[in-house]
Amino acid sequence: MEFGLPLEDILQKLAEEGYRISRRTFLYYVQLGLLPKGKRKGQKSGGVKFYYPTWTLERLKTILRLKKQGLTLKEIKKRLPREIPSPLPPKTFPQTARLKDCNVCGICGAICPVHEEMDLSPWRLIQAWLEGPDSLPSANTPWVCVGCYLCEERCPREIPVVDFLRFLRREGLPPGKRWRKHPEWSRIFWSLLEERGRSFDFGAVHAYHIRIIGSGENQRLFLRLPGPEGEKEVSAPSKIKNLSAFRRALEHAREWP
């Protein structure tokens, strides 16, 4: 099993890139839950060292960058991608054979509308996956994908890129690398859906913005809701009929992994 990096290595690597923090600050962040907890590992010399997942380094850099922008630690915590605690080991992708056909032509990365947001192009993840799930680098790619299917349409080898990324997002990654970009949004969305059987986009966006993003230009969204009777206030959405049966069925559906 991979243990990751010891604390000293992380701090040294950070220093090489011009970030400087003390050991104490690092441990404080761990305590706050901004960084993952380390794993104890006995050394040959008899001492004990704590090892942290490799993605800790990236996460720490993000924290420091955000801090420079003047955000408080509390705000930073809200913004950071959160880990999904899952005891399930990574599964194998059912269409791995098709991934082997990848020619590394780079079309998927080139055509991706959101590639600027992505750490790594999909083909890099495909290549890493073929090396073995453990060699997958931590990257936000699966979570940034908007699912527009342009990559699949253009791929000369007809590789199911979107399916692969969907798989990584759901179950393909080892527990330490499984995280969720916008947990708060999800939580709000699902609770509204369970409440009514229908989603309430205005309510959800509103709640989300108040809690996470704060005020900003996106507020233009709420300015008007036109109609033949003139502008109208947002009313709560309609509901489906037998909600308790619906919720029961939804719970039932959730049971299948």
């Binding site: 590394v104 032509c105 780079g106 079309i107 080139a110 055509i111 590639h115 083909w123 253009r154 000369p156």
Partner: peptide, 28 residues
């Protein structure tokens, strides 16, 4: 440049490139 071109378009990504063809590709 090692990479396949994904698209050739007359619509620029950056407005200053207007009047040229825009190629999307990744240098792999």
């Amino acid at each position: 440049i090692r990479g396949q071109v994904a698209e050739i378009s007359e619509v620029p990504l950056n407005p200053e490139d207007e009047g040229r063809l825009t190629l999307l590709a990744e240098d792999t």
